[in-house]
């Protein structure tokens, strides 16, 4: 998918309702539930093996860049808006993107020596996403050294979320993806339906890398 360059203000890119998004290329990425057997603990596998989860069927992805920022617009169907975290059983809706930080990083949260960078947005903190690094299932760590701003709208049973970040990051380059114009990056997606108590590895994920060509 081509990530077009469009020289608009970053705040325009950051708005999921901005008309500029109609000019962006898009892709509908199919999602599937993460296998119960791959959950990091036996408790989680046992508890969820007969439960229905990860039913978000796809996420519509668009991306644009301007001179110094990149923005991803993710939209998916979710009839229940879960943004609270007060009751012990409250889990907010969430979405994430995964970028490999090395050529042979595993789709499943990277691995030892082959880390991945995760951009994680959650409905209880709608205005920012977190930048995490992971070296395998169950290892993700928050690296709050990179700022990812976000804006989200829930309307007509759908979430639309834009995550926006500087193309290049200088600090802690080892744990955050560098987006270089003219090059390609790969990414995958995950969606959590909070209303179904989905969190951690209980989610819908895209089982193949989506290649993004960053327009020079």
């Amino acid at each position: 998918m081509l990530v077009k360059r469009i020289d608009v203000n970053g705040d325009v890119l950051g708005d999921p309702a901005a008309s500029v998004w109609s000019t962006a290329n898009g892709e509908t990425v199919p999602l599937m539930p993460t296998p119960a057997a791959m959950q990091p603990t036996k408790y989680i596998s046992t508890k969820w093996q007969n439960e229905v989860y990860g039913q978000t069927k796809s996420v519509s992805v668009k991306a644009l860049r301007n001179a110094d920022e990149i923005a991803f617009r993710l939209e998916w169907q979710d009839p229940t808006k879960n943004e609270q975290r007060i009751e012990n059983t409250d889990f907010p809706d969430a979405v994430a993107m995964q970028f490999p930080l090395s050529e042979d990083a595993s789709l499943f949260m990277g691995g030892e020596g082959t880390p991945v960078n995760l951009w994680y947005w959650r409905a209880d903190h709608p205005a920012r996403a977190r930048s995490d690094v992971a070296h395998g299932i169950g290892t993700s760590r928050v690296m709050d050294d990179v700022s990812i701003s976000a804006q989200a709208v829930h309307a007509n049973g759908r979430w639309s979320v834009v995550m926006r970040r500087a193309l290049s990051v200088t600090k802690e380059a080892a744990s955050a993806i560098q987006i270089v114009p003219g090059q390609t990056v790969r990414t995958t997606f995950a969606v959590w339906e909070g209303g179904n108590l989905e969190r951690a590895g209980i989610k819908a994920f895209s089982p193949a890398w989506l290649e993004l060509e960053i327009e020079a």
Binding site: K42, Y43, T46, N88, T89
Partner: peptide
């Protein structure tokens, strides 16, 4: 020795 599934107790239950 297998885990027994359970639930998250709520604030109201506590």
């Amino acid at each position: 020795g297998e885990p027994r599934p359970s639930k998250i107790p709520t604030r109201d239950e506590f």
